[in-house]
Design a protein around this nucleic acid. Structure first.
Length: 230
DNA sequence: GCGACAG
DNA sequence: ATCTTGTCGC
């Protein structure tokens, strides 16, 4: 099982205090001064997602690579593992990342951009799942969340493409982005090696007809199937 | 101190 | 995340 994108092995903290210490130690490695892949150029966009069966202690991850323009599936990969960490708000990455890395490592193409569920720098310690995954892989990563977590926002305009700041106090940590007319926005934040403008543009590019990007929809479907077959 | 809180 | 069918509406 090769993992061509791996820069750092995933930490396996034994408790919450250790997990927070890992986040504090790694967050300085997040790169925020790159614009990221241009929405005007061809792109291999990879969606990652995870499904759980806590009763069986099983977790299944999926990575699906799409051509960002045609939305054609270029490659798929899955991985199955043991649940490595409980769900704790702020520590989601430790629950998802080990199996996600396995799936990414089995993907036959190199991602130009990874899209994951959850947040990047919109995080209590500015090191959410998307940033964590970015630092470990070195890849550009954006986070797309379905809920505003602990942050505040004013509703964006009613049309697709409208957005408003996602705020932690007065600091903009992401954007509430309307991906469909009149539908609840998604919450986009930068993970690693992508700017917020580009992140939103790419999320819109990958979203057609549904609230969520096709990358996450495809990964969601695949990891659920992988969990059943596990 | 208590509750809320990505998935 | 997960428990879960049909149904109302564009």
């Amino acid at each position: 099982m090769t993992q061509p994108h791996l820069q750092l092995p995933p930490a396996r903290p034994a408790n919450e205090a250790e997990a927070r210490a890992v986040q504090d130690a790694l967050r300085d490695r997040v790169v925020l001064d790159e614009p990221g892949p241009s929405p005007a150029e061809p792109l291999v966009a990879v969606g990652v997602d995870v499904a759980y069966d806590d009763a069986r202690d099983v977790v299944a991850a999926a990575a699906v690579a799409l051509d960002a323009d045609s939305l054609t599936v270029l490659a798929e990969a899955t991985a199955v593992g043991r649940v490595a960490f409980p769900y704790v708000p702020g520590l989601l990455a430790f629950r998802e990342i080990p199996t996600v890395l396995d799936a990414l490592g089995r993907l036959a193409v190199t991602p130009g951009l990874v899209v994951c569920d959850g947040y990047g720098v919109a995080h209590p310690r500015r090191f959410g799942l998307a940033s964590h995954l970015g630092v470990l892989t070195g890849l550009p990563v954006v986070g797309v969340a379905k809920n505003p977590f602990a942050f505040r926002y004013e509703p964006p305009g009613p049309h697709r493409g409208d957005s408003s700041p996602l705020l932690d106090g007065t600091e903009e940590v992401g954007r509430a982005l309307r991906t469909r007319d009149g539908v609840k926005p998604v919450f986009v934040s930068v993970g690693h090696r992508v700017g917020l403008e580009t992140a939103c543009a790419q999320v819109l590019r990958l979203t057609r007809g549904y609230r969520l990007p096709e990358t996450t929809r495809a990964a969601d479907t695949l990891c659920r199937r992988a969990l059943k077959d596990a």
